[in-house]
Amino acid sequence: MTSHLETAHDSATPESGETPEVPRTPWSRFRRRFRTQRVGLISLGYLIFVVGIAVLAPLLATDSPNAQDLRAVLASPSGEHWLGTDDVGRDVFSRLLYASRTSLLAALLAVAVALGLGLVPGLVAGYARGRIDGIVMRIADALMAFPPLILAVALVGVLGPGLTNAMIAVGIVFSPRFLRILRGAAMSIREETYIEAARGLGCSSVSIIGRHVLPNVLSPLIVQISFAAGTAMLAEASLSFLGLGVQPPDASWGAMLGRSYRFYDRAPWVVLFPGIAIALTVLAFNLLGDALRDSLGREER
């Protein structure tokens, strides 16, 4: 009898004699899954590097970003000007560093506006349904019916050119995306058992949305923020390229492209470096969003 119990016990115990560690909290599960996302880790590291460059730009820059040297117009990369100069003799390396501040600030501002406009209506529409949902979704559908860049240009035309106005316009254009994602998540969560229990206990709708619905929509919201940040940076570059974003002499990667593309045949470096910066940063945001989506999803087993 004893040998039979020992055999059964041995068969149920792992060969190593140790119980495998199973993450019990959402944060520990996220960390375990995100560590396996090599591309996501590289993207996160690159974005941290860009943020560090933006913060330390005054210390890293070799020259003032707006200082002109008309004796060195369109100078090729050298020991004095590491990435060459632009059409009025400004150091491209220094302007590239300072432009990272503008581009990151533009992405942050656009995402903040989009989130501010889409968060509450999306949660309320998804939870309340009915007439409120119908009204909110018709407004969102009307905004999404316009081509995003054309609508942003029209809004900038009304508000006036400038980085802040341009990013407010981009945020308004992006807000229906946040709204629809939050609405869908809220519609799914409102049918959960714990929501029914909260209603049965007499909790108000505002309390249920704030305490139960909002924390459970953070996963898709974080992923959407990552994707939107990259798209907002690309939109800022497009508007600055058209002269509707950052105004001279301030620098952004899009503004640098908009001013220098006319000289790409004579000085390709003035187009190459800001173009690479935009492409890599937008790609990093998108790849990070993919990694977050895979890491924040529900366990399959």
Score class of each variant (00 low, 15 high):
residue 134 G to A: 13
residue 91 D to S: 06
residue 143 L to A: 10
residue 3 S to T: 09
residue 219 S to R: 12
residue 160 G to W: 09
residue 188 S to D: 14
residue 16 S to Y: 09
residue 53 I to W: 08
residue 203 C to T: 06
residue 215 P to H: 04
residue 125 A to M: 13
residue 99 A to G: 15
residue 200 G to R: 11
residue 185 A to N: 07
residue 157 G to E: 07
residue 165 N to R: 02
residue 176 P to V: 06
residue 61 A to M: 10
residue 59 L to P: 07
residue 67 A to G: 05
residue 110 A to H: 00
residue 293 R to W: 03
residue 271 V to H: 14
residue 170 V to F: 01
residue 85 T to W: 02
residue 44 L to E: 13
residue 154 A to Q: 04
residue 254 G to A: 00
residue 170 V to H: 05
residue 6 E to C: 02
residue 155 L to V: 00
residue 116 G to S: 02
residue 124 V to S: 08
residue 164 T to L: 14
residue 90 R to V: 09
residue 37 Q to I: 08
residue 291 A to S: 04
residue 276 I to V: 13
residue 29 R to Q: 13
residue 67 A to R: 10
residue 118 G to V: 03
residue 118 G to L: 15
residue 17 G to C: 02
residue 271 V to C: 12
residue 146 F to G: 08
residue 156 V to M: 02
residue 159 L to A: 07
residue 277 A to E: 02
residue 33 R to T: 15
residue 275 G to D: 02
residue 165 N to I: 06
residue 18 E to K: 10
residue 266 R to A: 15
residue 161 P to T: 04
residue 162 G to Y: 05
residue 208 I to T: 00
residue 266 R to S: 11
residue 86 D to R: 01
residue 216 N to Y: 03
residue 45 G to R: 07
residue 262 R to M: 12
residue 266 R to C: 06
residue 155 L to Q: 08
residue 263 F to L: 04
residue 81 H to L: 03
residue 162 G to Q: 07
residue 296 L to S: 07
residue 166 A to W: 05
residue 19 T to E: 11
residue 106 A to G: 12
residue 118 G to M: 00
residue 105 L to S: 13
residue 26 P to K: 00
residue 107 A to V: 01
residue 95 R to P: 14
residue 17 G to R: 10
residue 62 T to C: 06
residue 5 L to R: 07
residue 164 T to P: 03
residue 4 H to Y: 06
residue 225 I to E: 10
residue 256 M to W: 01
residue 69 D to G: 05
residue 84 G to K: 06
residue 245 G to E: 08
residue 209 I to T: 04
residue 115 L to M: 14
residue 174 F to C: 12
residue 151 L to A: 08
residue 188 S to T: 14
residue 150 I to H: 04
residue 190 R to P: 04
residue 162 G to I: 01
residue 220 P to V: 05
residue 46 Y to F: 15
residue 46 Y to N: 09
residue 144 M to G: 10
residue 295 S to E: 07
